[in-house]
Structures are given as C-alpha cells and as structure tokens.
Design a protein around this nucleic acid. Structure first.
Length: 249
DNA sequence: TAGGCCATCTGGTCCT
DNA sequence: AGGACCAGATGGCCTA
C-alpha cells in the first residue's frame, strides 16, 4: 500500500471512529431520556442500560394493563409486571421505590429523597408496596405522579387518543408544559431530575486515542508495516489485532 | 479478585 | 466512496 493510501485509510478510520462515538453518544442520550421518564429514581443507583430497557418494557406493559382497566396501578400485579425479568438489584430498587412506611419518606435513604414532598394525591404521593421475600432496601423513589398522569389520560384530555397518535418523534405528543424531564410528571414540585451518582456519568472522557493521535498505526492499514511508533508503543487500550490481514480491493 | 458495566476501536455489511 | 449500523474485542472503573 502506498503511503498516500495509508493516509487516506487512516483519515477515514479517524472519521469513522468519531462518527461511531457520536452515534453511541446519541444512543446513550436516548437511553438517558428513557431513564428520565422511568418511574423509579435513585441518586445512588442508576439503572444500567439493559435494566433501563427491561424496566421500560415492563412499564409499558404495566401501564397498558392499567389502561385496559384490569390492573390497578396500586396493585401487586402492577408491581409484579413492573419487575418481571429484572435483576435482583433492580427489582429491589423498584420495590424500594414503591415501599413507603407511614411517614412520608420513611425508610428512604436521605440522599434518595428528592427533598420535596409530594402534594396530597389520590395515591398519597407515593405508592406503598411491600415486596414479598425481598430485602427491599429502599433505594429510590417512585413517582406516583406518573401514575396520576396515567389517570389523567384515562379520564381526561388524552383518553380519546390512541397511542399511535403520540409517536416517538415527539410529533403529536400530548401537550406538556413542564421541563423536559421527567415528561410524564404532572406535578411541578415533584421529582427533579436526579443528580448523577458519583460514578455517573462514567469517568470515561474521550480523549483522542493513540490511533487518532497518530501514535501508532491503525491495524486496519492492512498490509501493516509495524514500524515507527507502533512498534515501540503497545497501547494497553488497544493491542493490535489481525495483523496478518491483507488489504484487498 | 471476579464480575458487571461501560466507552471505544474495529471490521463487516448494507444502503445511498 | 462514504455513511449508518452492528457485533466482537478490549481495557478501565467500580463494587461485592
């Protein structure tokens, strides 16, 4: 391969890496948006990606069942649907969110309380639930305002709209004047978006990789010549792979 | 220390 | 050719 060709390939690779990073950041942003409308909030335990997706799926199912009238949002069935297939820690989180003692906020970690008290609501602000057989340390809060929103939809302005009218793009979404997060909340003084836990966002901050910095040749230069910095610099992050690959086109 | 989770890099595939 | 998307590989960080 000619030098110029290697340069072109490397430039493409750098651009592709940047695009991929950007794409993944977009994906993570979307996931974060999803987290923000989940009914469970915890400052100390952030839902993982996979658990966020599982909980979202369960949440949709549970709300669907509630909308169909079969299941009360305060029922055990609602809770069980919510926790279906979740990991034990997440189940505990959800259970903890739903579990509240006689005093508002009782049993909650101080740091998990949002520092505000829910206004009197038909649900008492928070939903009480005792999870059977679970240690259920209360890790977070369950925002019953989300459920109230559901009730508003059932009996209110949105009742006559099919779910299809509210699409993911935001076009046709029901009116919502509040802050972007959590969009489902109808209570203005409830559940400010949780502070990131000490470990979130992850400590990974992008800095140009050794490849992007040109400290070593990308392995995808194919008929790679292990010369220059690459030979002397074996990055712990990305050791060379497939060095026997041969460029074809 | 093992396991979980994550960000990033990379090569492959498909599409425009 | 180049971009989007995907999945595998890898190493870092954190927690139990």
């Amino acid at each position: 391969m000619t030098k110029a060709r290697q340069e072109r390939f490397r430039a493409r690779r750098i651009k592709a890496n940047a695009r991929e990073r950007s794409r993944m950041h977009g994906l993570n942003d979307a996931l974060e948006n999803l987290r923000s409308i989940m009914p469970c909030h915890s400052k100390t335990q952030k839902l993982s990606k996979i658990e966020t997706l599982r909980l979202a799926r369960n949440y949709i199912c549970a709300l669907s069942e509630a909308l169909e009238g079969g299941v009360s949002t305060e029922s055990r069935a609602f809770m069980e649907t919510l926790c279906k297939g979740l990991s034990q820690p997440t189940t505990n989180l959800v259970a903890g969110c739903l579990q509240l003692g006689p005093a508002p906020g009782a049993g909650m970690r101080p740091e998990d309380r949002h520092g505000v008290r829910a206004p009197p609501t038909p649900l008492g602000g928070m939903v009480s639930y005792s999870s059977p057989g679970l240690p259920s340390p209360p890790y977070g809060t369950f925002d019953s305002a989300h459920l109230l929103h559901l009730r508003a939809m059932k009996g209110g302005a949105y009742e006559n709209h099919s779910p299809h009218e509210y699409n993911a793009s935001g076009v046709g979404t029901p009116p919502y004047d509040g802050p972007p997060t959590p969009p489902l909340s109808i209570s203005s003084n409830l559940v400010p978006k949780q502070e990131p836990s000490p470990h979130y966002p992850p400590t990974h901050h992008y800095s140009p990789s050794p490849v992007d910095q040109g400290l070593y040749q990308t392995q995808s230069s194919y008929d790679v010549h292990l010369e220059g910095p690459y030979d002397s610099y074996h990055p712990p992050h990305m050791p060379p792979r497939h060095l026997t690959s041969v460029y074809r086109d």
